[in-house]
Design a protein around this nucleic acid. Structure first.
Lengths: 325, 325
DNA sequence: TTGAAAGCGCTAACAG
DNA sequence: CTGTTAGCGCTTTCAA
C-alpha cells in the first residue's frame, strides 16, 4: 500500500542497502546512484517509516510529558518551552494530561514504558505510583517529588513563600491567610506554605491556612472562597499559592465591596504569560519557566545518554509588584 | 537487554504465540497457562514493546497535534480537550508547536507523515505548505483553511464579529476600530473582521482596521497599540480579535487615563478558561472549545476509519457581557 | 562502491 | 488449546 524503501530501490534499480545509505548519508555512494535514488524517492513521494527505524534503533526520539493539564497556564507554558527545547535536540513530545487522576497517570506510564519514549518529564505525580520504581526509563521531575532516583527541578518554593509573606507583613497585614492544595498530595509547593508559617511565627503572627483543591471546578472553588471570607472576617491579606485562586479571591472581594489592596492584600504565585497579560495588576511570585524548562531538558538528555545528574536543582523566584498589595 | 516476549515465553515454558495471546486476550488459553505466563511477566517486569506492535499493525494509536503554541491559552485549552477525548478513544497525542514558523511546521509534517501517527489535527497553518497535499494521512483542521480535501472545524467567526460589532454600536460607539492578524495568513478568523466591516457599513459607519501580528512579542505589541491610540484619537471602541490583545488595549487605556467603558469600549475574542478566571470583566466572544474539540476528534476518527466526513462544520459562538462595554 | 541476508520484537495465519 | 513460521520496513554487518 504505502511506498516503502524497497519500492524506491526497485524503481532506482539498486538494492535496499543503497537506498538506506542515501537516506542516512552513510558510507560511499556515487553521485550518479545518489541522484537516481533521490529521483525515485521524489517520484514515489517516499517518506521513510519512522516506526521501522525505531524498532531497529531501539530509540524513538520521543519524550513523554506527564502534567496535570496543559490547560493550566503554568503547565501549558512549561510544556511549550519544553517542546521548543526538545525539538531543537531532535525529540518530539508525547503529551499526557493526568488530570490529577492516578489511574490515568498509571495507564500512561504503563504504555510509555514499553519503549514508546526515550525519556519522561513528569510534573503531575500525586500519590505513590509504583510504576515509577520499576522502570529504568530516564525520568526528570518538575516541582514534584517522586522518589530518590528521579532528579527534581523546582523553583525556590520556600523563598517564594518567604518573599510573599514578608511583603504582606511589611505593608501592615496581620491576619494573613494562606491557601494551599490538599496536604496528602506530596509536592515541594507545600514549601510555600511552610515558609509562610515560619515567617508568620517569627513575626508573632498566627498562621492560618485554607485548603483549595486544584481538582475542584470553578463553582466549588468560588463556594469555598466565599466560605473562607466568612470563616476569617478579620483577614486583611491572602497569600494564594497560585494565580488563578488569587484572581478568584480578588474577584469575590470586589463583589463584596472589599477594597484591594486597602482592605485586603493579595499575593499570587506563578506569573505565567497569561497572568502577565490578562492580570498584570496582581502582585505575584514569578517562577522562571524558561529556566526550569531548560534545566529539565538538559538533565533529561544527560540521563538518556547515561551521564550522571545531580538529584536536585533549585532555581530562584522573583517578586512581581502589582497593585494588589 | 530489555525483557522481551521471548524471555517471558522461555521462563513460562511456552511459545511466543501463547504469550502474545495472553497479552492480547485472544484465542483459547487454559487458565493454568495463562497463570504461568502472568507470573513470568510479573517476575521479569515485562512490558510489551509498543514499537514492534506498531510496525506489525501499521498503526501507532498516536495523533499529532500541530498548533501555534500550547502556550496560547486558547490553543492550550483546545489541546487539553483534544487530548482528553483522544485518550478515551485509545489515542495518545504527539504535540508540535509550530510557533507560526512554516519551516518548523514543515519539519514536523515530514516526520509525522512517516507512519509516526495515525492522524493529524492541525490549527497552525500559515502559508501554503505542500506536504499537506502529498500525504494521504487523515487530517482535520481547526479554524484553519488548508485545502479542499481537509475537513475544517470552526466556530462561527462571522457571527462572532457581527455580535461584537452590533453590541458596540448599540451602546453608542461610532469610531470602532478592529484589530486583526496579518492578512496574508489565511484563516477563517478573518471573517470576524469581515463581519465587522459589513455591520459598520450597514450602519453608515466607517470600518477601520489595525494589524496586530500574533508573532510580535509583548513589547512590540504594546508599542503598536500605543500607535493605534495615536492614529485614532477619536476612537470610542475596539473590537480585538483575541482576548490577549483586548487585555493589552485595556491596560494601556488605563495608563492613559481613558475610562473603560465610558470613553472606550472593548470587546475581545476567545474566552478561554484563563480569561474567564483572570479577566472575567472583559466583554468577549466565547468560542465553544469543548464542542470544537469533540467534533474534531469525531471527524478525525471517521477519517481514520475511512468513513466519509463533511467538509465543513461550524459551531455557534456566544457573547459574554463583561464590564468593558 | 554496492548487495545479500539477518534481525529489531511482535502478531497472525496455518497446522496440529 | 498450543506451536511453527513468515513477515511488518528498516539498518547493518559482512562479503563481493
Amino acid at each position: 500500500m504505502t511506498v516503502k524503501l524497497e519500492d524506491v530501490a526497485e524503481l532506482a534499480g539498486v538494492s535496499k542497502t543503497t537506498v538506506s545509505r542515501v537516506l542516512n548519508n552513510r558510507g560511499y555512494i556515487s553521485e550518479q546512484t545518489r541522484k537516481k535514488v533521490h529521483e525515485a524517492m521524489e517520484e514515489l513521494h517516499y517518506s521513510p517509516n519512522a516506526v521501522a527505524r525505531q524498532l531497529f534503533k531501539k530509540e524513538t526520539k520521543l519524550v513523554g510529558l506527564i502534567f496535570p493539564s496543559v490547560d493550566n497556564p503554568f503547565f501549558g507554558e512549561l510544556a511549550a518551552e519544553l517542546e521548543k527545547r526538545l525539538f531543537k535536540q531532535g525529540f518530539k513530545v508525547l503529551i499526557g494530561n493526568s488530570m490529577n487522576d492516578p489511574e490515568k497517570e498509571k495507564a500512561y506510564l504503563k504504555e510509555l514504558i514499553g519503549n514508546q519514549v526515550d525519556g519522561l518529564i513528569v510534573g503531575a505525580h500525586n500519590y505513590n505510583i509504583d510504576e515509577y520504581k520499576v522502570t529504568n526509563l530516564p525520568i526528570v521531575a518538575i516541582d514534584r517529588i517522586i522518589n530518590d532516583d528521579i532528579p527534581i527541578i523546582a523553583s525556590d518554593n520556600y523563598q517564594g513563600g518567604k518573599l510573599a509573606t514578608e511583603l504582606l507583613i511589611s505593608k501592615g497585614a496581620k491576619n494573613i491567610i494562606v491557601t494551599d492544595g490538599p496536604l496528602d498530595f506530596q509536592t515541594p509547593a507545600h514549601n510555600r506554605r511552610i515558609a509562610y508559617e515560619s515567617v508568620m511565627k517569627k513575626n508573632k503572627l498566627i498562621p492560618k491556612s485554607f485548603i483549595i483543591d486544584f481538582n475542584w471546578n470553578l463553582d466549588k472553588k468560588i463556594k469555598e472562597i466565599k466560605r473562607m471570607f466568612k470563616t476569617y472576617p478579620n483577614m486583611d491579606a491572602v497569600f494564594a499559592t497560585n494565580d488563578a485562586d488569587a484572581a478568584l479571591i480578588w474577584r469575590i472581594a470586589k463583589r463584596m465591596n472589599i477594597k484591594v489592596p486597602e482592605e485586603l492584600k493579595i499575593v499570587g504565585y506563578d506569573r505565567a504569560t497569561s497572568t502577565r497579560i490578562l492580570l498584570p495588576e496582581l502582585t505575584s511570585i514569578e517562577q522562571p519557566v524558561e529556566e526550569m524548562a531548560s534545566l529539565a531538558v538538559k538533565t533529561l538528555i544527560k540521563r538518556i545518554k547515561g551521564e550522571k545528574t545531580v538529584p536536585k536543582q533549585i532555581v530562584p523566584v522573583t517578586l512581581w509588584k502589582g497593585e494588589s498589595v
